Simulated assay, not measured.
Amino acid sequence: MIPVFDGHNDFLQRVAAAGPQAARLWLEGDDQGHMDLPRLKAGGMVGGFFAIWVPSPAGLTDHAAVHAMENPPFDLPLPPAIHPDAALPHAFAQAAALLALERTGTLDIVRDAAGLRATIAAGRIAAIMHMEGAEAISDPDALHLWHRAGLRSLGPVWSRPTQYGHGVPFAHPSSPDRGKALTPQGRTLVQTCNALGIMLDLSHLNEAGFNDVARLSDAPLVASHSGVHALCESSRNLTDRQLRQIADSGGLVGLNFASSFLRPDGRRLPLEDLGVMIRHLDHLLAILGEEGVALGSDFDGALMPRDLPDVAALPRLIDAMRGAGYGEALIRKIACDNWIGLLERTWWG
């Protein structure tokens, strides 16, 4: 089985909600959501980015929003910003949930490239602590504290504004060129992340902010869970110009499995043909090359394709790559090795 290292999941929300049953949820599963340890093992997943994310008071699951996303065109308003004092308890709870998983002895929170490789070799799940939206980080001192706690990947925004920058709204059809550039605090955040070796994630960031990170950062540009705008005109997807900038930096894009970012019509309905995912991968490979393309599922955070309902179904995607003529070496790069190589170029050690 080809191993998979995944660029993004939202499993920690389920773990935090499980409370005292968190370890059991992880070790035994509950037939809910997209992930747990038995299904990770069945699907060949050896590790990934475990996201800390603060929910908006009114989310994208209310009836009106879901109806709009099922029937494009739509352009949902950005949720309001969340103050750090309100965000911090959510972030702490999810970080504590990841630590609880580590205490089971089946998962390690990895902090450097050597630890990442050692954990995978030992047969444990290699978890990168990622923060999707920096609401809980009030200032550079707080970022240093989170780094000490294990944070190694950070998206300055989710799809709402923070003190650092602006996210794209959920819209189709739409350009990602929505909203303002990074704030002065955002520019400082980029520099501090570079100094600490924290990977900056451009998924959800608007085009003006993307341009600022490309100008300011001395690390490879990364979008952990995004798709191709030329194939699906979602505001969340990347234009060919953005893809070329990522390629020029030696960076990487993890393909998002979310059906609405894959389907040409942008509808929030299950993708019915994994061949559409292959077309996104083909497009990414044509611009980024074989070392610049990976996977970024968004498990437990998005509506999955019909034939890829959870992590245990990952071999179906591997088989689809084989059916499209991808060789075993290229499949392994996309599934696992490219993320590890990117982190070795971004982190220290």
Rank of each mutant, 00 (worst) to 15 (best):
T104G: 01
A113C: 08
G105F: 03
P57F: 04
V46P: 03
P84K: 13
I109A: 02
T61I: 14
F92I: 14
E102A: 07
P140W: 11
F74D: 02
L76M: 06
T61L: 14
G47R: 02
L101I: 06
A58Y: 12
E132T: 09
M131S: 03
A58M: 14
R117K: 11
I109W: 03
P84C: 09
I125V: 15
A64L: 12
A87V: 02
A97K: 05
P89C: 09
H144F: 13
T106G: 09
D85R: 14
A136R: 01
G44Q: 07
P77V: 04
A58F: 12
G105L: 07
H63A: 15
H63S: 15
A126D: 00
H90S: 06
L99F: 13
V66Q: 08
A114W: 11
D139E: 12
G105D: 05
A58R: 13
A91I: 04
R111Y: 04
F74K: 02
D85Q: 12
T61H: 14
V46C: 06
I82D: 03
S138R: 14
S138E: 13
F49R: 05
L88T: 08
A87K: 01
L143Q: 06
P140L: 09
L60F: 13
V66P: 05
G43N: 04
T106C: 08
A121I: 05
V110S: 00
L101H: 06
A114E: 09
L88V: 11
L76E: 02
A100N: 13
D139R: 09
D108C: 12
A122M: 07
A114S: 15
G47K: 03
I52K: 05
P79T: 06
T119K: 03
A81W: 10
H130W: 10
E70K: 15
A121Q: 12
A122C: 11
D85W: 13
L145Y: 13
I137S: 02
T119R: 00
L76N: 03
A136W: 02
A100V: 14
F49Q: 07
G43K: 01
V66I: 13
A134W: 01
Q94M: 08
I120C: 07
I82W: 05
D139F: 09
L107Q: 00
G43E: 04
A81H: 07
D108M: 11
V66Y: 12
R124M: 09
I109Q: 01
H90W: 09
E70R: 13
M45S: 10
F92P: 12
H63R: 15
Q94N: 01
D141E: 12
S138M: 11
I82P: 04
L107F: 04
E70N: 15
K41T: 14
A65P: 06
G123F: 08
P57G: 12
V46K: 04
R124F: 01
A97G: 06
D85Y: 13
A93L: 08
L143Y: 00
L40A: 07
A142K: 11
T106H: 08
A87H: 02
A51T: 12
A68M: 08
A81G: 15
G44T: 06
A86G: 09
F50H: 08
V66N: 11
L145V: 14
P72S: 09
A134H: 01
H67C: 15
V54D: 00
D112R: 00
L60S: 15
D112I: 02
A91Q: 01
G123E: 08
P72L: 02
I120D: 02
H83Q: 15
L98K: 04
H130D: 11
N71M: 12
P57A: 10
A65H: 04
A93W: 01
I128W: 03
A64P: 02
A126S: 06
